[in-house]
């Protein structure tokens, strides 16, 4: 199995839509002024949104929502809106049924998720 690289650029208001969709209204994600007041460069992406991009890279390649059995991520650094993210997936093991995939998410040349790994089943059988 091969998992193509996924690229996505979150727009300026993505964090507001994701806050509503997920229920996570932490102001560091939606309030530019608040984020700066606590020493951040500005609004930062929700880590769990970035994790969802890791999941999407797997399910789009493997055949739908039933194909992802496990996903573990470590959050490193911070993602920001309006800059492209790349999700790079490397199949480490593949026994013909389940693939073990290593995943890295980078933005502006830095990893914002690393040491991530997933168990992916073809077609989700």
């Amino acid at each position: 199995m091969e998992i193509p690289q996924l690229t996505v650029t979150p727009d300026r208001y993505l964090t507001v839509r994701y806050a509503g969709a997920s229920g996570d209204f932490n102001p560091i994600h939606i309030d530019e002024e608040f984020a700066r007041s606590v020493g951040l460069p500005g609004k930062i992406l929700h880590g769990l949104w970035t994790m969802a991009q890791c999941a999407r890279a797997q399910t789009e390649a493997a055949g739908g929502p039933q194909s992802l059995k496990r996903l573990a991520v470590t959050f490193r650094g911070m993602g920001v809106p309006e800059a492209e993210l790349t999700v790079t997936s490397t199949v480490r093991e593949d026994d013909g049924t389940t693939a073990r995939v290593d995943i890295v998410v980078e933005q502006n040349g830095r990893a914002i998720i690393r040491n991530a790994d997933a168990d992916v089943v073809r077609g989700g059988s």
């Binding site: 996505v8 994701y18 969802a52 999407r56 399910t59 739908g64 929502p65």
Partner: peptide, 26 residues
């Protein structure tokens, strides 16, 4: 919000045609 493109998660007819009772959650 997450940019999901799978029709099972977005299109009720597609989800039902695939044998699901309703939309499938990512």
């Amino acid at each position: 919000a997450i940019g999901e493109r799978d029709e099972l998660c977005l299109d009720l007819d597609a989800a039902r045609a695939a044998g699901f009772a309703d939309l499938v959650a990512p």
